[in-house]
């Protein structure tokens, strides 16, 4: 995967680049908005990670200009701690996701993966599969190995999100944002408790565990051993 990182803070940039390289990806770095824009306008990147505060051209304008040129490279915004309106502004400007600094690398990686493989057209998908698990998005029903599993609406949403990112790690924060629309970090283990209930329904009595915990990172739905 080719990732462009536009970030003026050398330390943050080095941290992300190192992590991406360790995961076998290619990363280019631009330290200001103008260079970032020229690099991104080639359209040769799978994901761009763009800081909001940049010299020369700020992150918002950069993404607006990219979108104006018809370049649809998924953009992950990096925003500063406590920037309350940054998320909405960033998404309005054409960003696809956002991440508040400081962040753990696993969080960046999970989000970059989610963005890079975001299917272009999602409307056609009506059934998600993972091993013997089958999720019917129209009937909103779940079956595993032919047995019907009754899920509560929120549990269904949780499983659906995992299934849409099958074989990829999703973080706790991603789940809070996407499943509950919580853009803050509750002290309570909301995700964990819901996940354990979902697991009890999906995995109990089956030999192969589909939902796995990735220590220090998040969760993973996968049929691979």
């Amino acid at each position: 995967m080719r990732v462009l990182i536009v970030e003026d803070d050398a330390e943050t940039a080095a941290y992300v680049i190192k992590g991406l390289c360790e995961h076998g990806h290619f990363a280019d770095h631009a330290s200001n908005g103008r260079d970032g824009f020229f690099a991104a306008s080639t359209g040769s990147y799978d994901v761009a990670i763009v800081d909001r505060m940049l010299p020369a051209i700020d992150g918002l304008s950069l993404v607006r200009q990219l979108r104006g040129q018809g370049i649809g490279t998924p953009v992950l915004f990096l925003t500063n701690l406590g920037g309350l309106d940054d998320r909405v502004e960033g998404l309005n400007a054409g960003g696809d996701d956002y991440l508040v600094k400081p962040f753990a690398f696993s969080e960046v990686m999970a989000r970059v993966n989610a963005l890079a493989r975001r299917p272009a057209i999602t409307a056609a998908v009506t059934v998600l599969r993972c091993g013997d698990l089958e999720i019917d998005l129209l009937k909103r029903s779940v079956r595993r190995g032919g047995c019907r599993i009754d899920l509560q609406p929120r549990e269904f949403k949780l499983l659906e999100f995992l299934a849409r990112h099958v074989d990829r790690v999703v973080t706790r924060t991603m789940l809070l944002e996407m499943v509950w629309d919580f853009h803050f970090d509750p002290k309570t283990n909301i995700v964990e408790t819901h996940m354990s209930r979902l697991r009890a329904k999906v995995d109990r009595g089956f030999e192969c565990e589909l939902i796995r915990t990735v220590r220090g990172a998040g969760y993973l739905l996968s049929a691979q051993a």
Binding site: D85, R154, W180, F182, P186, T188, N189, I190, T193, H194
Partner: peptide, 24 residues
């Protein structure tokens, strides 16, 4: 933050949050 004000479904907010915390 008032610029973020919209017509919101307060019932939905209450249920979502209550539901989210119930298992915990």
């Amino acid at each position: 933050r008032r610029i973020g004000f919209r017509d919101v479904d307060l019932s939905a907010i209450f249920s979502t949050v209550a539901h989210a915390f119930a298992p915990a």
